[in-house]
Design a protein around this nucleic acid. Structure first.
Length: 498
DNA sequence: ATGTTC
């Protein structure tokens, strides 16, 4: 086991963390929308919560583990500045979803719980040359065509058939492979975080994971994953909107999906390997789900390379569905253009330079259910948007609107260049299934001219808007903090999901 | 999130 602390002394580590009267970590308000859990006990740094009073109260609901989890994250070796929770934060596996943790490259660790089971789950937005009037009246046919072509739900099937040999190429080079095989354009690669490729190693992905993935290239998945035709309903900031190629009433397509069974299996494989390799760490952690590998160990390299290979698969997966959307739109419309605005990851860990204690240093930033939101000037932002800031997409719950944001000027200082990733779940899937019925929800949405097609009624109930936090509130807090500023609001037209 | 209860 590694003892690579950066700032904890033995006196502190023997002291139990301070809890308030409700058994929850005590939270101090630093300024509007910014709260802190002070360092105590085994915490190496404080925890920082970005939330309004209302969102904070939701994180403090009875039985909710969000605040305890972020406090646990603050105990990780090598963690820098603070462990952070974005405004949509809620409890997850080990780390909260909406969690951000940056660690030192030498003394730090990599934790699968800080990245998530769905490696490189993310959101992309496609802009078209169509307006809402062009699709009106065609909604039912359009939703049917998309639903027929793109496999949804769990299990096998993908729009692009590949063999295991081609899968190796995809794991190695992601969107590059897709371009070289006719499924992506150069412009697609240019408008994608990391150009749609991280340096992954296919040999670090298990045969089991590959067998699951080879059948699933170009498949949506289940849960909150969706493909939605939307229209631009409101523009809040003309300059970034114009830079992103967005205007009022324009038709756009949002795809929220990830690495499917392949990523899930990869995460599972490495959690098991870490638990086996580091039994002392596992036993001593405040929560076993925080299991990690020290970055100095080769097992950490293995996971990182496998995780990046799975990330490449996720990009290829979203690209395969993009190709399918282009096929469908070509059938429905005359000479449609379907261009990638951007593609963001919200479940990944990446090496990035950040300013820490007045000096620039490279850290490994874990983002789980958190979107990178780099401001203008960062070289990682595509040239087309570099003077503006990177596009950020925050989907609302099913049937509610989604937002386009722009990486904000305060994001580097406040959140290692991050913001929220969605509305954030409020009620458990089980609870939602008890409270809502698919037929009722689809009828209500239809009354608002929103066409939802789903494989499973249970999924529709789980994704009921009432099961989620208020997306408007999440985005308002992000904007007020200057971590991700509001650019446009998108309203659903047709939606397919698992 | 997930061949959804390793």
């Amino acid at each position: 086991m590694s003892d690579s602390s950066n700032s904890t002394d033995s006196t502190d580590s023997e002291r139990a963390p301070a809890d308030d009267v409700d058994g929850l970590p005590a939270v101090t308000r630093l300024e509007e929308n910014v709260y802190e859990i002070e360092r105590s006990g085994e915490m190496r740094v404080p925890a920082r919560i970005y939330a309004s009073e209302k969102l904070l109260e939701e994180m403090r609901a009875p039985g909710d583990l969000t605040l305890k989890q972020v406090r646990n994250v603050a105990t990780l070796p090598g963690i820098q500045r603070f462990a952070a929770v974005m405004p949509d934060g809620h409890q997850g596996y080990g780390f909260p979803i909406g969690g951000v943790a940056a660690v030192d490259m030498e003394s730090g660790v990599i934790s699968p719980g800080g990245i998530g089971f769905d490696i490189n789950c993310g959101v992309r937005l496609l802009r078209t040359n169509l307006t809402y009037d062009d699709v009106r009246g065609l909604e039912n046919d359009l939703v049917g065509a998309l639903y027929r072509l793109i496999p949804t739900g769990t299990g096998k099937g993908g729009v692009v058939s590949i063999g295991l040999d081609n899968l190796e190429g995809i794991l190695e080079s992601g969107m590059m492979w897709m371009r070289d095989h006719g499924y992506a354009t150069d412009a697609d690669l240019e408008h994608c975080e990391e150009n749609g490729r991280l340096p992954g190693d296919p040999s670090k992905v298990s045969e089991m994971a590959k067998q699951r993935g080879v059948k699933q290239l170009g498949s949506l998945g289940s849960g909150n994953h969706f493909l939605e035709v939307q229209r631009v309903a409101e523009i809040y900031d003309e300059t970034p909107a114009a830079a992103f190629g967005l205007e009022l009433d324009q038709v756009v397509v949002m795809i929220h999906s990830g690495s499917r069974g392949l990523g899930h299996q990869t995460c599972t494989d490495y959690i098991r390997r870490f638990e086996k390799a580091y039994p002392t760490v596992a036993a001593s952690l405040p929560d076993r789900q925080l299991i990690y590998a020290p970055l100095a160990d080769s097992l950490a390299d293995d996971y990182r390379l496998g995780m990046y290979a799975a990330a490449n698969f996720a990009w290829a997966n979203r690209q395969a569905m993009t190709d399918a959307v282009r096929q469908v739109f070509a059938e429905f419309f005359d000479d449609p253009t379907v261009e990638l605005v951007y593609d963001v990851c919200h479940n990944v860990a990446k090496e990035e330079p950040h300013e820490i204690d007045g000096r620039r240093k490279t850290v490994l930033v874990h983002r789980k259910g958190a979107t990178r939101a780099f401001p203008a000037g960062r070289e990682e932002v595509p040239v087309a948007y570099r003077d503006i800031g990177q596009p950020v997409f925050i989907p609302g719950s099913m049937g509610t609107h989604s937002y386009v944001l722009c990486g904000g000027p305060e994001s580097l200082e406040r959140s290692f260049g991050s913001t929220a990733h969605g509305a954030g779940r409020l009620k458990s899937r089980t609870q939602a299934k008890k409270e809502y019925r698919a037929g009722d929800l689809q009828r209500e949405l239809r009354e608002q001219q929103i066409y939802v097609r789903a494989r499973s009624g249970a999924t529709v109930a789980e994704e009921a808007p009432g099961a989620y936090k208020d997306i408007d509130e999440v985005v308002r807090v992000s904007d007020a903090l200057g971590i991700g500023t509001t650019v446009a609001r998108l309203r659903p037209v047709v939606n397919i999901k698992g």
